[in-house]
């Protein structure tokens, strides 16, 4: 039997990431923890955008749903972190399911705008209920409550391992999904929805599952962000956090499981270095988007895959 090259590659990446904590200096270890959480967010987004071909401009809402789902249950109901984390995922998944059910009645540009509008309404709702959410200012999750099974999530090493764990699970689940029957249907929908329908598949439940699944990823990332870094705020629901996963996926490679990780690392450090040069460092985001869409639509790994007979999932 031929070895499962793809699985081995992904396991190797996971192992390499784990080893990074022994190699990287503290500052970059902290950065990588953040990157892994954001890459988890983008890995889910990739299932929707990269594999199903649905471009959402509203995923910040699901990230925020995870963040507030975890944060609010801890703040107001005194839930332990172990319960609050899944609460965030559930909140985001339900919200994604509901919004997906509505938004999927539209396609293309209309889908982009509908998701954008829902996310904007969600952001404003967080501001509107600032009595509870503390709006833009946000609130702090008390350090003492941020532990799971005795592990202190605010400890740098624990935080890194937690972020790594969440990312690794997310990556393997994504790998399994895109290689499953469902994943192949999603790609078929992306390539030609009409033909998929004629082959006897009702695209709607598949598309809805993709929205909900990407919502669950966003929720997991948001909840993890709240638990690992301790603050919750409305700015995480703003449009910028909807653009970020799109950018990571585009750069790393749409429809490549490892793409979002590559994209997140590259963009993070591009911005990091741009900051040294100018206060207008966000120009990097703009230039990257324009150049990618003009010259490298497939992103880094997308271009690489073409040269590797396409075995890279």
């Amino acid at each position: 039997m031929k070895p499962d090259r793809a699985l081995l590659l992904h396991l190797a990446v996971i192992a390499a990431l784990f080893a990074m904590q022994y190699v990287l200096p503290a500052y970059h270890q902290g950065n990588l923890a953040r990157i892994l959480v954001l890459a988890t967010f983008a890995t889910g987004y990739n299932i929707l955008f990269g594999y199903t071909g649905l471009l959402s401009l509203g995923h910040a809402l699901f990230f925020a749903a995870g963040m507030y789902g975890a944060g609010m249950t801890m703040r107001f109901l005194d839930w332990p972190a172990l319960a609050a984390f899944p609460a965030g995922i559930v909140a985001a998944t339900l919200l994604a399911g509901m919004i997906g059910a509505l938004a999927l009645r539209t396609t293309g540009v209309a889908f982009m705008i509908v998701t954008l509008m829902f996310a904007q309404a969600g952001y404003l709702t967080i501001l509107y209920f600032n009595e509870f959410t503390r709006g833009d200012e946000g609130f702090v999750i008390v350090q003492a409550t941020r532990n799971i099974l005795g592990f202190d999530l605010s400890n740098d090493d624990v935080r890194f391992v937690a972020a790594w764990l969440i990312f690794s699970v997310g990556l393997l689940v994504a790998l399994a999904v895109v290689r499953s029957r469902m994943g192949r249907v999603l790609v078929a929908i992306r390539e030609n929805e009409e033909r998929t329908r004629m082959l006897g598949f009702d695209p709607f439940p598949y598309k809805l599952s993709a929205v909900a699944l990407s919502g669950a990823y966003a929720g997991a990332a948001g909840a993890a962000y709240a638990l690992l870094f301790g603050s919750v705020g409305a700015s995480f629901a703003s449009i910028q956090y909807s653009i970020e996963p799109l950018l990571f996926v585009l750069l790393g490679g749409t429809g490549v499981v490892l793409g979002p990780l590559v994209g997140a690392i590259v963009i993070f450090y591009l911005i990091e270095y741009a900051r040294e040069v100018t206060t207008a460092y966000l120009i990097v985001v703009g230039v990257a988007l324009v150049l990618l869409i003009l010259f490298a639509r497939k992103g880094v790994l997308g271009s690489l895959r073409r040269r590797t007979d396409g075995w890279l999932p």
């Binding site: 401009l57 207008a280 966000l282 703009g286």
Partner: peptide, 27 residues
Amino acid sequence: KRLDYEPEATIVATIGLLYILQQGALV
């Protein structure tokens, strides 16, 4: 023009343009 006005690509490109113009004004 180079994107042949493909709807989703142009949206992504104009998002990029948004950042470029905004940050250009900042400078």
